[in-house]
Amino acid sequence: MKSFMNEFRDFINRGNVLDMAVGIIIGGAFTAIVTSLSDDIISPILGLFGGLDFKAYVLTLGSVEIAYGKFITAVINFLIMALIVFCMVKAMNRATSKLKKEEEIEEAATTKVCPYCKSEISIEATRCPHCTSQLEA
């Protein structure tokens, strides 16, 4: 039992488990925001233009009510959340690629290639540290 508890403690202390837990908590809060956006802003606006309130749509079959309007609202919530996540990922990818390009530019400005052995060396070097060839200025 002690070995099991030690393994469990090691598992919990891994960084990716903690990151996942934080992501789930933030995702829950984000879901509440998107649900409020859909319920409190988008659905009433749609109601203004088309007289639509999706939550009011219910199909009654005998004593059973099928609230398909709530399902439509859930689909709208999903689409909004997917759009926001897509935009966030796209912005993060754009920022990451911009940073990588800047790093490549900085790296390219600090190194050059030896014309004799084709090794990458400092741009300030006058002699190649790999093949010891004298370099032109």
Score class of each variant (00 low, 15 high):
Phe11Val: 10
Ala67Pro: 15
Gly15Asp: 05
Leu37Glu: 05
Glu65Gly: 11
Ile24Met: 01
Ala67Tyr: 11
Leu61Asn: 06
Cys117Glu: 13
Val75Arg: 09
Leu135Pro: 12
Leu52Asn: 02
Gln134Arg: 13
Pro115Lys: 14
Asp39Arg: 15
Phe49Gly: 07
Ser36Ile: 10
Gln134Ile: 15
Asp19Lys: 15
Lys100Ile: 03
Arg14Cys: 04
Ser43Trp: 06
Met5His: 06
Tyr116Trp: 08
Val64Tyr: 11
Asp39His: 09
Glu7Val: 08
Leu135Val: 14
Leu48Asn: 07
Asn13Phe: 05
Ile24Arg: 00
Val34Gln: 00
Phe49Ala: 04
Ser63Pro: 11
Lys2Val: 06
Lys118Cys: 04
Gln134Asn: 14
Ser122Phe: 03
Gly69Ala: 03
Ala82Phe: 08
Met92Gln: 07
Arg14Phe: 04
Ser122Lys: 06
Asp10Gln: 14
Ile41Cys: 06
Thr73Ile: 13
Glu103Asp: 12
Gly51Cys: 03
Ile12Leu: 08
Ser122Asn: 09
Gly27Gln: 00
Ser122Asp: 14
Arg9Pro: 02
Asp10Arg: 12
Leu99Asp: 09
Met20His: 06
Ala32Ser: 01
Phe49Ile: 06
Ala67His: 15
Pro115Asp: 02
Asn93Leu: 02
His130Ala: 08
Ile26Pro: 02
Lys98His: 13
Met81Ile: 00
Ala109Thr: 00
Leu79Lys: 07
Gly28Cys: 09
Ile45Trp: 08
Gly69Pro: 09
Arg94Trp: 07
Phe11His: 03
